[in-house]
Design a protein around this nucleic acid. Sequence first.
DNA 1: ATGAACCCTGACAGTTTCTGTCCGCATTGA
DNA 2: TCAATGCGGACAGAAACTGTCAGGGTTCAT
Lengths: 242, 242
Amino acid sequence: MSRALRLMRLSEVLRASDTTTVDALAETLKVSGRTVRRDLATLREQGLAITGESGRGGGLRLEGDRGITSVHLSLEEVVSLWLAARLSQRTSTLPWSTSASTALTKLLASLPRSRSRALTSLCRRVIIGPPPTARMLESLGEVPRDALAVFETCFTSRTAMAFDYRGREGRSSSRRVEPHGLLVQSPLWYVLAFDLDAHAPRMFRIDRLSKLRRLPSTPFEPRRTVIDALLEPGFDWQPLMR
Amino acid sequence: MSRALRLMRLSEVLRASDTTTVDALAETLKVSGRTVRRDLATLREQGLAITGESGRGGGLRLEGDRGITSVHLSLEEVVSLWLAARLSQRTSTLPWSTSASTALTKLLASLPRSRSRALTSLCRRVIIGPPPTARMLESLGEVPRDALAVFETCFTSRTAMAFDYRGREGRSSSRRVEPHGLLVQSPLWYVLAFDLDAHAPRMFRIDRLSKLRRLPSTPFEPRRTVIDALLEPGFDWQPLMR
DNA sequence: ATGAACCCTGACAGTTTCTGTCCGCATTGA
DNA sequence: TCAATGCGGACAGAAACTGTCAGGGTTCAT
């Protein structure tokens, strides 16, 4: 039996038995005790909570197999983690950046198919752009907390929304839009929207919005074309997920 | 990465993605397509229902069996998520930022005690600082991939390490240190270390290191004093976790 | 009907990894 | 104090793995 298969069996045996010893495992798996220990170390690296108690009467046990069941994480929670991880990978070479990827894969893997579909399609609507230029950052305003919450629900539930927008020259205008996409150029971000009055794609910087509110309507169908129309080609625009 | 680990990752990636191709998998797993096929064959032997569709637009998919598995995240994986989430919360007001907090709390809560303790003590050694000044960013260099991996293991396993360091004036010196802490001022980061030769706390910017390698030694005991000695008081230094 | 984009499988040699053995150490309960 | 347990380093021979090459398919758009 190859090591790979043995590792799978080992984790099953551990799940099946309350406590056991290295020698017993060595017996069942037909390998030496040393090898069992090596395998245990590998599984622990993988995140399995296997504890060992020394001494007479001690032994090994797999702690409450309740690993983290991401079933309890909401869609928004997983998206937020995904966003954060991708952003930090994008902006710098930090330690454990590959670990973040594998962690997210595991999370996604554990979701039921319907949820993972929803998550994927949501992530595809989020675009990560290159860092903003100094000029873009000049007039950076505050993002009001409550507007954030409204945007979050409108974006995920695909609901049209209305707001007042301060243009670059200070002129204010009233808008009604469908939020198809989200462009992040941290710390800035933009709503990639379809303007229901102009009847064309438009983008809006989040800190220039005010009086944001939902519009009663049926959910719109997110269209990739709206997003693409707003992103100048040739730049490095990456969706949060492909 | 050993084959055993790769097989686990492969099954996770398959679960996570709706459909995918051999080439894509080869890319993510950093192995040749032939090897991916061999791994797929092994998983199929194990009973995983992986179907392949030939032809243009075809691909691989894992049938059924979703949501049964619980997620096991390694220490590094949880740390990386914390790091990423905290960083992005720190630098900007993005949507779903509160969701990230709750998600992380849930993650922490569901870890078995032994692991959560290890996680906490690791996170305490990571400090998040204010964004770097333009002057600090001037001479930003590349961080080599392999050095990262070495650092990660040394940091978590509390192992001393050795490297060559290019000082500000271009002078190079050879160092042997214990990595007690990690200071992040994204996209820069520093090793907060105890210099075994100077016998005093020193900090090193990561992109100035080269030829990083582990030193054979017994694990050192992380000391808070080493970290504190290097952080000028009065600034906004926040540990990743209190 | 051609080519591109997919999947599947066999053979081979070089390399990597794994395994058992032996060792010393720490912890625990009788 | 001893025996039963766990943990992990070092080593050399054995086994498994890997990339490459080379063949074979199927499906679809053009």
